[in-house]
Design a protein around this nucleic acid. Structure first.
Length: 565
RNA sequence: CGGGGUGUAGCGCAGCUUGGUAGCGCGCAGCGUUCGGGACGCUGAGGUCCCGGGUUCGAGUCCCGGCACCCCGACCA
């Protein structure tokens, strides 16, 4: 590929609205261009990377026996209505109607469609287990796209679906995918770790995410430095010290706390620590009843955990008017009262009195108030005890590059998808799904593999194997030699980007560093004199002269024997 | 969903306070000189100043309304 013909140009300066280093490099190196908020067009350099990422995924999916199919982008409403997700996904999906008024959405994901086909194709246990996958666009009307390709509104995902007779079979295919993911990310140069995750609006209950730790990530991951515990903060738990206070506590009494509407206010006005208080909040459950949630003043509600407990997809604090800020669990009537597991038994707390400017002191759980359920609804923090081994955990940011879900019969039950088992009974198809976002993977590679000059592509996903630079393109001898070299390399099966532009050496070197192709081959008057070519790896400071007649063999060796198809 | 910021040439920005011929750097085109780390000279092209309305003799600039994009926060009782 001649660079004079390359569609898309490199930028000296990144647009100011590109905030992460990877986004800046992605734009500067002509990987992709924005079209609208959260919508990007792949340019040739980026598209080549995306295709290589896809190919690695394809090979690893094929290796575990998954079969490639393709389901349309435009999906009819009827299947989504069977599972209730037509309504549940409304706020985050793109929808349209055909001329006959029939409703469609751009697939947010494809579980329903796979399940629909599966129930028609799979009649007998003899056809199981099986696994299919496809690469297809997903449309998600994200409230807030961000960081270039990291969170967008349309993107290609590889989504795979396993179908089994029973939990045992599902478990086997689930872990086969887990293994495939580990190999897939390793091959594309991503250091991804597997963490326990919440299942969100996907349904089901067992899930892992593959997270790449980086400061630009939007997820927070709880990691135990000692054992193997790793979990998304949305799901993470901690070992709670078994504390019980046996001190004799005087009867509760009211105290005046004018204007002290927050824990911070109370801490500063009463001079006590935040964990001396109980904070109480009111939400609504799925049937519209008031839910009272009480937890220690130094802890915060973990909304994903609470959503799951309440079975709702969105949470909203109930407007409580003037007594907001003075709420407490004593004598408050609600359809459900929840207490967080970290509230210490027997300990006297200060709580709101459900009366303006008033709190109650010496409030003890079980003596002064009772609850319906004690549940884990609090955030884990840096330094909390690991739930497995008790070591202080750390919290890091991560990008979720892949996820795997074990649904079991969840979709089959809703969609009446059954097969005839060996004993003649009808059983639900056991289901799992497994996703990797292509664009996010590419952007994450850039975020985690660059230096101050540009991208450093892992060889397996680089847009080209080699970047040939002809210095002084107006020199006939240099040009002729570079032309011949490129031809020879391409004939040997190498993918070559050829900088044949009439630019200064500095510009060419700078662009080569920016684009980040693993190997740079320089042809110049200087190298011609030695009858050699300068070979420099992107990750090395200096290059070496390689004799002209050995260069192709040498490049074949460093790239591997891989030929172009 | 809320808050903040920004829209002027392909990119980065100035001009707006105080209304009066739309600018700078990079990039781009032509010619010439250069040619191993973002070269130099000369000449030149390139604008719906986000959109609509208003005020005014006159609006990039002032006023009103809208749109787009970016960032932050996810309501903490």
């Amino acid at each position: 590929m001649r660079q004079t013909n390359l569609f898309g140009r490199t930028l000296r300066e990144a647009p100011t609205d590109a905030t992460t280093p990877g986004t800046q490099l992605m734009l500067r190196a002509a990987i992709a261009r924005p079209l609208a908020a959260g919508l990007y067009t792949w340019l040739p350099l980026g598209f080549r990377v995306a295709r290589k990422v896809e190919q690695i995924i394809r090979e690893e999916q094929d290796r575990i026996g998954a079969q490639e199919i393709r389901i349309p982008v435009i999906t009819p409403a009827e299947y989504w209505k069977e599972t209730g997700r037509w309504d549940a996904l409304e706020p985050v999906t793109f929808r349209t109607k055909d001329h006959g008024g029939r409703e469609y959405m751009i697939g947010y994901t494809h579980e329903e469609l796979v399940m629909h086909h599966a129930r028609n194709e799979i009649l007998s246990y003899r056809q199981l287990p099986t696994m299919v996958y496809h690469f297809q666009e997903k449309g998600r009307d994200e409230e807030r796209p961000r960081a270039g390709l990291l969170r967008v509104r349309e993107f290609v995902m590889k989504d795979a679906y396993s179908i089994d007779r029973d939990w045992e079979g599902l478990d086997k295919q689930y872990w086969a995918q887990h293994g495939a993911y580990t190999r897939t990310f390793e091959r594309m140069g991503l250091k991804a770790i597997s963490v326990e995750s919440d299942t969100g609006n996907m349904g089901g209950d067992v899930a892992h995410e593959f997270q790449v730790l980086t400061e630009v990530g939007e997820d927070r991951i709880v990691i135990c430095p000692k054992c193997d515990y790793k979990a998304n903060m949305e799901k993470a738990t901690r070992r709670i010290p078994d504390q019980t206070s046996t001190a004799t506590v005087p009867a509760r009494s009211a105290i005046a706390t004018p204007g002290a509407k927050t824990i911070d206010d109370l801490v500063s006005s009463l001079g006590l620590k935040a964990d001396s208080f109980l904070k109480t909040m009111v939400y609504r459950d799925s049937s519209g009843g008031r839910v009272l949630v009480t937890l220690p003043g130094d802890r915060e509600v973990n909304e994903p955990k609470l959503r799951k407990i309440l079975g709702v997809s969105a949470l909203k604090l109930e407007p409580m008017g003037p007594i907001a800020g003075f709420l407490g669990p004593v004598d408050f009537s609600a359809s459900q009262k929840l207490l967080d597991t970290s509230v210490i038994k027997g300990k006297p707390y200060i709580t709101g009195a459900n009366k303006v400017d008033t709190h109650l002191k010496d409030v003890v759980f079980d003596r002064d108030f009772t609850v319906d359920k004690v549940v884990d609804v609090h955030d884990v923090r840096e330094g909390d005890a690991c739930p497995k081994c008790g070591t202080a955990v750390t919290i890091r940011r991560g990008v979720e590059v892949g996820n795997i879900f074990k649904f079991g019969p969840y979709y089959a039950d809703k969609m009446n998808a059954t097969f005839e088992a060996e004993d003649g009974t009808r059983k639900p198809l056991m289901f799992g799904s497994y996703g990797i976002g292509i664009g996010r993977a590419v952007q994450t590679i850039i975020e985690t593999s660059h230096d101050d000059k540009g991208i450093v592509w892992p060889p397996a996903v680089a847009p080209f194997h080699a970047h040939v630079l002809a210095l002084a393109t107006n020199d006939d001898a240099v040009r002729a030699h570079a032309d011949a070299l490129v031809q020879e390399l391409e004939a040997a099966g190498l993918e070559v980007l050829y900088d044949d532009r009439n630019e200064s050496a500095g510009v060419k070197f700078a662009d080569a560093d920016l684009i980040g192709i693993p190997f740079r081959l320089t042809v110049s008057k200087r190298t011609l004199k030695e009858n050699a070519v300068e070979l420099k790896a992107r990750i090395e400071e200096k290059g070496t002269l390689v004799p002209r007649d050995e260069i192709t063999k040498k490049m074949r060796a460093v790239i591997g024997e891989r030929r172009r198809p």
